[in-house]
Design a protein around this nucleic acid. Sequence first.
RNA 1: GCGCCAGUAGCUCAGUUGGAUAGAGCAUCAGCCUUCUAAGCUGAGGGUCACAGGUUCGAAUCCUGUCUGGCGUACCA
Length: 547
Amino acid sequence: MYEEVLRNAFADALNKMGIQNDIDIIFETPKNPEHGDLSTNIAMKLAGTLKKVPREIASELIKNLSLDKNLNEKIDIAGAGFINIKFSKSFYSEILKKLYEFDKNIGKSDLGKGIKVNVEYVSVNPTGLLHLGHGRNACIGDTIANLYEWLGYDVTREYYFNNAGNQMNVLAKSIYARYRQQLDEPDFPFPDDGYHGDYVKEIASDLIKENNNKFIEDNKNNLETLRKFGEVWCFGKIKKTLERMSINQDVYYNEDSLYSEGKIKEVIDEFRNKGLAYEKDGALWLALTKMGLNDDRVIVKSTGEPTYRLPDIAYHREKFRRGFDVLIDIFGADHIATVPDVLAGVKALGFEPGKVKVYIHQFVTLTENGEQIKMSKRTGKNYTLDDLLDEVGADVVRFFLLMRGISTHLEFDLGLAREQSDKNPVFYLQYAHARISSVFDNAETKGIKLEYDIDFSILVHKTEIDLIKKLMNFQQTIETACNRGEPQILADYLRDVASAFHVFYHECRILDVEEKLMQARLALAEVTKNVMKNGLTILGIAAPNRM
RNA sequence: GCGCCAGUAGCUCAGUUGGAUAGAGCAUCAGCCUUCUAAGCUGAGGGUCACAGGUUCGAAUCCUGUCUGGCGUACCA
């Protein structure tokens, strides 16, 4: 938050020196604390264009710099030309005072006021149960939606519900085979391309419980009924699993409506009118090569059915038409190929593809004792997200799925999550919150109340200053995590805050010290608690008062 | 073949708009509880940043090539 002030001061100084340059003035926290609190390499960046030695530029810059002496203890030049800034203690008490005033709203802002964001995630077809990969998608999407919401954007959480397409027929046939196997013919052949998962057997037995042999005849109507039964069964389970992870979406956008409301046809017509669609081999092709891509693709098969690209494009067009300013798609790595096609299609229809942000996450592998556990819907032996939630709980699952960058493959070690769950990093974060709560409980029994007017300048201990340094970055961290679509940035940050608090707690007593100091430390603990609570909430993880 | 993601400590991973001595957790070893929760704190060991070149004051980060793993590359979704 103070960076803005510094940046302006540096820009002014550059102006005074008669240097006009668009170059970004970037401050970073040096790895080595001896180098100060913030550091900039601006002098080195300018060295090339100005044809001057970096250290000379730096010293001239400092001469022209007007900063509040009260808040900045020292500004000096180091190394090849770094400018290092060291803040005074009173700088930190000023900062903490502001953080304390935010109270429970710390981290919130109105940065995105009036901007409509649509975050689409999960969007699993109702043909099976959720597995860990879906869980990753769900947690990332939910957290990104939370981040936007926290920054004041108008967020819609959306699930693209696809109950059309060939995969639903496969499900119907799979259910039918299990139904017959359980009902009257144990050797009834199971389709090769069917869904082998055990849940299909459950669907069949539920079907028998409710309807007995009513659908035993192999005809189109019965298959249609089974298809619908399976869809409702699967989607019910999916929603329940999501609820267990506190994931609730606002809109379930049904792919069917794109057909029934004529949107698919509109898109086809528009492509044709623009000369971007053509017939070949009985199919309709989209001329993606005219839009700079490598290959044209079929959008309507010779059977008359559209391929997945067409409804995907039509769906994105609808999202634009519904008035969203930003469209966010959370996809697994297997969807990577569709992205350029959809973006090209959207652009051809006259919408701005730059407003679509696609976040692709890599896969999750579930391992136990070094061996991989299969999670595929088609291989039968499933380890579902529900199974995992049963074993380790929602907080652990969410944290495990969010603690890594989205673009790396994530290894979920079941043995570790199960056996060592008390050493899980998520408990480290929650423990910090619980510890603070406990301090306030003790304060209450002693009749101590946190006052509003507090003298923060009394906080000068190194661990106190270190903690404040972490706390002041909360807002910026939320923004960065949001802009980059990386929940992991927030997760890492919270671990840092928790660590700084644990160290402070270990070194400094909060209660049973002199009144003014106690008040200031309580306030520091309060700010930490609010940051932990809000940060964990954004990640969708509970902030317990006791552990 | 082509495209995307990845390769960093024993393991799992941060760090990549080029910056100062490459970090964390787990694991290993050694310490700290008569005082607000020890699910905590302190310290130690552990590295050819896959490999080979290049760009420059400076490269884990940028460029080229090679190797390894994952995912795509359908008139499946």
